[in-house]
Every structure is written in structure tokens, then in C-alpha cells.
Simulated scan of single mutants.
Amino acid sequence: MEESKKKTTAWGIIGVGALFLLGKLKWILPILKFLKIKTLISMAIYLATYAVFYGWKFALALVYLLFVHESGHLVAAKKLKLPTTPAVFIPFVGAFIGMKERPKNAKDEAFLAYMGPLFGLLAFLPAIPLYIWTKEPFWAFVIVLGSIINLFNLIPMTPLDGGRIVSGISTKLWAVGLVLLLAYAIWAGSFIGFMVLIMGIIEWRRIREEQKNIEYDRNRAKDYQEMLTSLRNIAETSTYEHLQYFAQSLKPNLQVEEKLQNTLHLLDEEDGEMTDEEKERKRELKKQEFLSAFEKEVERIHNYVEETASYYQTDGKVKAGLFVIYIALAIVLGVSSYLSYPLLPPLE
């Protein structure tokens, strides 16, 4: 009777908490918008898959913890005004939201990443008093699972949240994450661990190449600025054929110059049946369109290069702040995992 009363009280606590959150509709509105049809379908498939293999309790706990974790990223993205794709749940892989735009700098990226495991921590905190009150093993399991999921995500290796957080301190810390992730993947025989490791190595190599080529890219951007100045100076006397030849001779020397090739089509249209005077007017218009498009593209390339060059540059105060909150969260999750694991019932 006493045990039943405790369980009833526990669910009453959950109900009160739910009503409190519903009362904060302004706060949870972004999360409600997060529940797109793609999210609901993938969540249902994910839930059913894990229910078949591990039971409904495990499946519900896992989906709940992952959803709250991803909601943290969503709230951060809304705060930074970054558009996102709906969350997608993939069985035996996890859940994620896609970013339609890159954060402006490593500090914003760290904030975006940090909010995931922070919300993940908040997700399982209510399970602590619930376990103390009911002694129900399920709540201990929620604490352990929540701790492990979010602690794993704090490994300092991209694409994990930890890698994106420490990128604002130093990308050299990814080497530590690489060792930790490799050790975990071998020790646990984890397919996901090896998959994340490979993805991290690829991303690390891409970013190193990007940073290494900054000076070269900056010089190329400068060259294009000089070309634009020269073209502007001779625009009045240059012929349509001259600009057409120039446009066709452009080569993509920067990865960011893909859009630049689109300006070529401005000068490649067929004139069709026109009088000489109409052709001349059209060609003059094309010249101005090309110069205007080229000017915008040169500015875009210049901005991209400078943003890339400064992306991972943060001041000492930011580095110290990121280090403190990262270590603090890792310690809390680690302690939670260590203290809660013995509370689980022994395997039969």
C-alpha cells in the first residue's frame, strides 16, 4: 500500500512538472514547432525499433532523453537566429538536427553545441528525486542512460558536441578526443564509435586544409578585387567580346567560387533576330549586369575568406569561459553516471 502511494505521488510530481512547463508556453513554443511530421515519423520508427529489441520502457526513456537533448540545440539555434531542419531519429545511430547556415564563429558554435548536453542534463535531473522517493529502478536507469549519452557527446572530437565546444578553445584538443574516441570504440567494440571517429578525422582534415589555405585564398580574393577595379576602369571602352573572353577565362581557384561561374551565363545568351542597334543595347546591358554580378561575387568571396580566417579566433576570456563550463558539465555528468550506475538491479 505504501509503495503504491509513493508511485502515485511520483506521477503526481511529474504531472505538476508537466503543467508547469505547459504554463511556460512562450518558452516551449520553439520545441513544439520542432515537432515536424518528419520528426514524428522518424521518432515513431525509432521508438518501435528499440521497443522490439529492448522493451518499451527503454525505448521511451531513450527517445525522451534524445529529444530533450536535440531541443537544447534547437533553442540555441533560435537564439542565434540560425535556421534548422527538423530533427531526425535514426535507429542505432541517434538523433540530430541539420543546420541550414553555419554559425558566425566558434563561440556561437560552442554555445549551439553546449546547449544539447546541458538540456540533456536537465532532462534526467527530475529522475533523481523520483528514484529517491520510489526506489523504482527505472528512474535509476534514466539517470544512468542520460548521463552516459551526454557524457559521450562531450568527447572533444567533432562531430560530437564536445568537439564543437572545444573548437572555441583550440582545435588541437581534438587530438585528445581522437584518442578517447578510439579507446572507447575499441574497448566497447562500438560501431557508432568507429563511425564517429572516421567522420571526425575527415572533418578535422577538411578544417586543417581550409585553415592552411587561408593565405593563398586571401591572395586570390585580392587578385579578383584588382581585376574588378581594372574592369571598372575600362568598362566604358571595353567591348562585349572583351568581357566575354574575360568571363570565359575565369577559373575556379577557390572552393567558394562556384557561384562565380554563374556570372558567365550573363554573356552567353543568344541575341537572336535583332537589329544592330538592339544588339548593341543588349550587349551594353549585359556588360553592366556582368560587372555588377562580378562585384557582388568578389565581395562575397572576400567576406568568406576573412570569416574563415577568423572563425576559430577567440580571446582569452572566451577560451577560459568555455573551458570552465565544459569541464563543469563533464564532471557533473561523470559523477552522475558513477553514482547512479550501482543503483541499477543486477543483470539476471
Rank of each mutant, 00 (worst) to 15 (best):
K5Q: 15
G15H: 00
V16T: 09
K24I: 11
L29N: 08
L35C: 14
I37L: 15
L40H: 08
Y46V: 00
T49G: 00
G55Y: 01
A61F: 05
L66M: 01
V68R: 01
L74Y: 12
A77V: 03
A87E: 11
F89K: 02
F89M: 11
F89G: 07
M99L: 15
E101W: 03
P103Y: 03
K104I: 00
E109P: 02
L112W: 00
G116I: 00
F119W: 05
G120H: 03
G120A: 09
L122C: 01
I132W: 11
I132Q: 12
T134E: 10
W139C: 04
F141V: 07
G146P: 09
S147A: 15
F152P: 00
P156N: 05
D161N: 11
G163K: 07
L173N: 05
L178C: 12
I186R: 00
I192L: 13
G193F: 00
M195H: 09
G200F: 07
I202V: 13
R206L: 07
E209N: 14
E209F: 12
K212F: 05
N213E: 08
Y216R: 15
K222P: 01
Q225R: 13
E226H: 07
E226W: 04
M227E: 15
T229Y: 04
T229H: 10
A235C: 02
E236V: 13
Y240R: 05
Q244M: 13
A247G: 08
A247I: 09
L254T: 09
Q255M: 13
E258R: 15
L264M: 14
E270H: 07
E273S: 13
M274F: 02
D276S: 10
R283P: 01
E284L: 07
Q288R: 14
S292W: 08
R300S: 10
E306P: 05
E307V: 11
E307S: 13
T308R: 15
T308I: 06
Y311C: 02
Y312Q: 10
F323S: 15
I327S: 09
A330L: 09
G334S: 08
L343P: 10
L347T: 06
L347K: 08
